[in-house]
């Protein structure tokens, strides 16, 4: 089997796993409390064990991952679009706009990430909305910088200058020549931003700045579990934590695979 076939198969597998987790989580009912089953260690019936209220941890983990995926996808999607717009504007506007954008990128990157997400999410009204806004407004910088550089390079091409001489407008050049050229970069950037967003979401929720406690988010599960670790209930933290890490690694791998396929150098190998 050629590398290309294997890469495509891997991408398909990862997408199926992620979609499966998301759909399963969305379709499931919340794990119900059952005090007769409380604090059970992992067994066939409850592979991830149960918590103090007798809720099945597997159900809670899948629900939590599903929520994280939703928040992550929304946040990184919106963030990537912001990056695309800002990056293209900076490269096109040159002068004042470019300076302003660069200043803004430096500013955003200069403040420690976690701190900035916390500040923005509190300012935006906490809860999942605050969290979403916080992640959106902090994750666009790296991609915006890449896009800006790429656009600067493309617009110095002779065919752009020629298009202008054929009477084509700046809008035409941007939408026909430049943006299509950027799309592979954009999608790779988006996918690679995805795990970041999920980690920040969970991290912040764990610290108590993110999702409200009644949501079944992974961060909530982990922070609850912390309290019972010392009492020997290791399964409360290990399985949800491991599931989160696996999910993040899978998405990262997905990004790498897509990059491999879209990159003209590696695409023919």
């Amino acid at each position: 089997m050629s590398r290309r076939v294997m890469t495509i198969a891997l991408i398909a597998a990862i997408v199926i796993i992620i979609a499966g987790v998301y759909i399963a989580g969305a379709a499931m009912n919340d794990a119900s409390a059952d005090f007769s089953q409380k604090s059970l260690s992992p067994s066939w019936e409850h592979p991830f064990g149960t918590d103090l209220l007798g809720r099945d941890m597997l159900t809670r983990t899948i629900k939590g991952l599903s929520l994280s995926l939703f928040v992550g996808l929304t946040a990184s999607g919106v963030s990537a679009i912001i990056a695309l717009i800002i990056g293209v504007c900076a490269a096109f506007g040159r002068g004042v706009i470019d300076h302003f954008v660069n200043w803004l990128i430096d500013l955003t990157m200069g403040i420690p990430h976690t701190l900035l997400v916390i500040l923005i999410s509190i300012a935006a009204g906490r809860g999942w909305r605050g969290l979403l806004i916080g992640i959106i407004f902090t994750h666009w910088t790296g991609l915006a910088r890449i896009i800006r550089g790429e656009v600067l390079q493309i617009r110095s091409n002779h065919y752009i200058a020629a298009a202008r001489k054929f009477g084509r407008s700046g809008w035409w050049i941007m939408s026909r020549h430049i943006v299509p050229h950027m799309l592979p970069q954009f999608f790779i950037g988006l996918i690679l931003m995805f795990p970041h967003a999920i980690m920040h979401e969970s991290g912040l929720t764990f610290l108590g700045f993110g999702m409200p406690p009644e949501q079944p988010a992974i961060g909530i599960i982990l922070s609850e579990a912390m309290r019972y670790l010392s009492s020997g209930m290791w399964w409360l933290a290990i399985f949800p934590g491991l599931a989160l890490v696996i999910m993040v690694v899978l998405i990262d791998k997905l990004g790498e695979c897509v990059k491999l396929l879209l990159d003209p150098v590696s695409a023919q190998e």
Binding site: N157, H158, Y159, A162, K165, H177
Partner: peptide, 12 residues
């Protein structure tokens, strides 16, 4: 109109 030395650079 200008026609350039390297056609491959003048075409998207």
């Amino acid at each position: 109109q200008l026609i350039y030395q390297h056609p491959e650079k003048a075409i998207n």
